[in-house]
Structure formats: structure tokens, C-alpha cells
Design a protein around this nucleic acid. Structure first.
Lengths: 138, 138
DNA sequence: CTTGATGCTCTAGTCACTAGAGATTGTAGC
DNA sequence: GCTACAATCTCTAGTGACTAGAGCATCAAG
């Protein structure tokens, strides 16, 4: 059995975050000692590591809830876990594409600025007028 | 002069967002009509477009505040604007690198899952154990 | 037996909005 | 002038995923 601080060190999840996960029902409320302190079984380490790792991978909490629900429901969970992860992958690809477009635009803006700096500031100008740039849609 | 709705349509910034920008001092409080409605001068369109575009590029509000402060302070603003944009570019590069690493990991996880699905679910396993994966650090 | 670390609950703050209530005002058609 | 109804006003509260802090109780070590 572990105290919340030990669990925190074992999983690298901060103590208030553990309590927060309990509050939103992501982590089951553990037993308490006579003095009202949380005592976690060893399995809590696994579950919390799972949550932490999924969060690091950018899964949001509803998605993690769905993944956790797949464990121990009898059916082979692979297909549904796969679908959740695949949807997440699509989102990440979109975010990378968007960020790459922004990167190019800002980098272009800075290059323009180097050439035009003496005259007038390109950075402010480009930011002021959307039509100066190559990126489309939010 | 424009009403808030017209300003909203001209800039594609939603009405409550315009009021929010006023509240946090990003957009100066405009004159009011006798019946207390906001009347914006035409310059507000420029300023709000600037803000919107910078937000789309991922600048946060303190950064935008800094950029706006550069306008009209007499000094050639290029160098400071350049520094702000350049720092921002670094951040974007880091975000792209992180997302790309996550993408690769999830994609690898899914590929493993395809091969091992009949035995046991790789997706859940990889998520449960950080050591299964290639990505390092948060 | 005291000290300092750890734990508890509770409230409020973060960021950049978004949503909604409930009231008033402006505009168009009749 | 009357009636809809769209636009606007202020105000409060909610979002996601925590984080920070107050103020108290309890535990382990010296």
C-alpha cells in the first residue's frame, strides 16, 4: 500500500493532480486510514502510469476514460482501442500540418523583414493584413 | 463609424470576443451612443484584424500586447518585433518536434497492434508502460 | 517532545474565450 | 403608431486540465 506522495513519486504525477483525477472519477477513490489519508493499492501505480502516458501522448480525458473502460470488459478491446488511437493520430497530423504552415509563414515574414527593415516593418505589416500571407484558414 | 456587429463581420471576430478584448485592454474602449452602444472608428478594423491574425499564428495575448505597444512608440519597431516573432518561431519548432515524436510513437503502436492483435492488445499495453516506447521526456 | 514533512479540504486562479440570462434599443413592415 | 424581431447591453458562470494557496491535522525522526 502507498501514500499519495509515494504514488506521486512512483508515477511522476503530482499530488494535486492525483486528487483531481480522483475527483473527476478517472482514478477510483482509494481506501483511507483511520486518520483519513489515502492508501493506494499497488495497481494504482499501473493505472496512473497509463493515464499519465496517455496524457503525454495528447489524449484528452474523455478519450482516456474510453480507453480505461475497455480494460476488463471481457471483449477483446483491440479494435476499439485502435479506433481511438487512430482518430487521435489524425488529429495530431492535422495539428502538425497547421503548425508547419504557421512556421513557414512566420519564417517568411522574418526573412522579408530582414530585407525591408530599413524602410518599414514587415512583421507588423504582415500581422496586420491577412492577405499578405500564404496560410489559409485558421 | 461601426457598430460592434459590423466590426465583428468586418474582422471575423465574434462579438463577445470583441467585448472580451476590450475588457482586458487589448482593444481601447470606444465611444458610446446616447443609448450606450459601442461606436468604433474605422481604425478599429485594422487593429482587430492585427490581433486576430496574430492569434491565428499562435501568439498569446501578452505577446500581442507587446507587438501592439511597438506601434507608434516613435522608435523603429522592427528589431523588437523581430525578436518576439523569432522567439515564437522557436516555440513552434519545438511543438512540431514534440508532435512529430508523438505521431511516430502512436503510429508505431498501431502498427505493433496490427501484428499482435490476436494475442493481446498492444495499444493498451504500450499506454500502460512507458518503457515500451521510444519517446523520451514529457 | 518538538520539528518539519506530509497529508487533508476548500476556494480561487489560469488562458482565451464561450454560453446564457434578462433587459433594453434599433429598425422594418404594416 | 404598433408590432416583430434583430442587435445590443451587462452580468454571471462554464470550459479543460490542472495549479496555487490558505489553514488545519497528522506522521516519522531525532
Amino acid at each position: 500500500m502507498l501514500g499519495i506522495g509515494e504514488l506521486s513519486r512512483a508515477t511522476e504525477v503530482k499530488v494535486p493532480t492525483i486528487r483531481y483525477y480522483e475527483e473527476i472519477g478517472l482514478l477510483p477513490a482509494p481506501a483511507r486510514t483511520a486518520s483519513n489519508r489515502r492508501r493506494y493499492p499497488l495497481e494504482a501505480v499501473q493505472r496512473l502510469r497509463f493515464i499519465r502516458h496517455a496524457r503525454e501522448l495528447g489524449f484528452d480525458i474523455p478519450a482516456i476514460r474510453a480507453l480505461l473502460a475497455l480494460e476488463g470488459d471481457g471483449e477483446p478491446p483491440c479494435h476499439r482501442a485502435d479506433a481511438i488511437a487512430r482518430a487521435h493520430l489524425d488529429q495530431i497530423d492535422q495539428r502538425i500540418a497547421r503548425l508547419t504552415a504557421l512556421r513557414d509563414e512566420i519564417s517568411q515574414m522574418l526573412a522579408d523583414c530582414d530585407r525591408a527593415c530599413d524602410d518599414h516593418c514587415r512583421v507588423l505589416e504582415v500581422l496586420a493584413d491577412h492577405s499578405h500571407c500564404r496560410h489559409q484558414e485558421h
